[in-house]
Amino acid sequence: MLEFAGFLPILLVIGMAAIQLGLIGYGINQAGSGARAAARVASQGGDGGAAGQAAVSGWLNARVDPVPGPDLTTATVTVRVPGVIPLFGPYTVTRQATMPTDD
């Protein structure tokens, strides 16, 4: 019983670190999906910011910046992944996608 009580904090930290890595991976995936959606819609003359926001989970508070150009449209999405382990703050993840601009 004493050995388990002494080892329990270590198990909790390892479990929380695994959850944190999963959340960061999910944030990377969501940022990439949002960047691709924003670049695709903005390259066709639509509202890329709204498309990027719609493609990302709402709790990640994504910031979408589509930049249409004459040949290429680039969209950058930044999401903030909350920290699970105390004293380790939120993590910022940024992904970028480029699509050819339709004429």
Rank of each mutant, 00 (worst) to 15 (best):
G6D: 06
P9Y: 12
I10D: 03
L11K: 14
L11D: 11
L11H: 08
L12V: 15
L12G: 11
L12H: 10
V13P: 08
V13K: 06
V13W: 12
I14V: 15
A17Q: 10
A18T: 08
A18C: 05
A18N: 01
A18Q: 04
I19D: 09
Q20Y: 11
L23K: 05
I24D: 11
Y26F: 14
Y26G: 06
G27H: 08
N29V: 00
N29Y: 08
N29A: 13
A31I: 03
A31D: 05
A31P: 12
S33C: 12
G34W: 02
A35R: 00
A37E: 03
A37H: 04
A37W: 03
A37Y: 00
A38N: 10
A39W: 03
R40T: 11
R40K: 14
R40D: 14
V41N: 09
V41K: 09
A42F: 08
A42Q: 12
S43H: 14
Q44H: 15
G45T: 08
G45L: 13
G46C: 12
G46S: 05
D47V: 07
G48N: 10
G48V: 13
G49C: 08
A50W: 09
A50V: 13
A51V: 02
A51L: 02
G52T: 06
Q53L: 13
A54I: 01
A55G: 07
A55E: 03
V56G: 04
G58R: 10
G58C: 04
W59S: 15
W59R: 13
L60N: 02
L60D: 03
L60C: 06
N61W: 00
A62P: 07
A62W: 09
A62F: 09
R63K: 14
R63T: 14
V64S: 07
V64I: 15
D65Q: 11
P66K: 04
P66I: 01
V67T: 12
V67G: 08
P68D: 05
P68Q: 03
G69T: 06
G69P: 01
G69V: 05
G69A: 09
P70I: 05
D71C: 09
L72G: 02
T73M: 06
T73I: 09
T73L: 07
T74E: 14
T74A: 06
T76E: 13
T76W: 01
T76A: 07
V77P: 12
V77Y: 05
V77A: 02
T78N: 05
V79G: 05
R80V: 10
R80F: 00
V81P: 12
P82Y: 01
P82A: 07
P82L: 08
G83C: 10
V84W: 01
V84Y: 07
I85V: 15
L87S: 11
L87G: 11
F88A: 12
G89F: 07
G89S: 13
G89N: 07
G89K: 04
P90D: 15
Y91A: 06
Y91G: 00
T92L: 05
T92E: 11
V93K: 00
V93W: 00
V93G: 00
V93C: 05
T94C: 08
R95H: 00
Q96W: 00
A97Q: 04
A97P: 11
T98G: 03
T98F: 00
T98K: 04
M99T: 04
M99V: 06
P100C: 02
D102C: 01
D103F: 10
D103H: 10
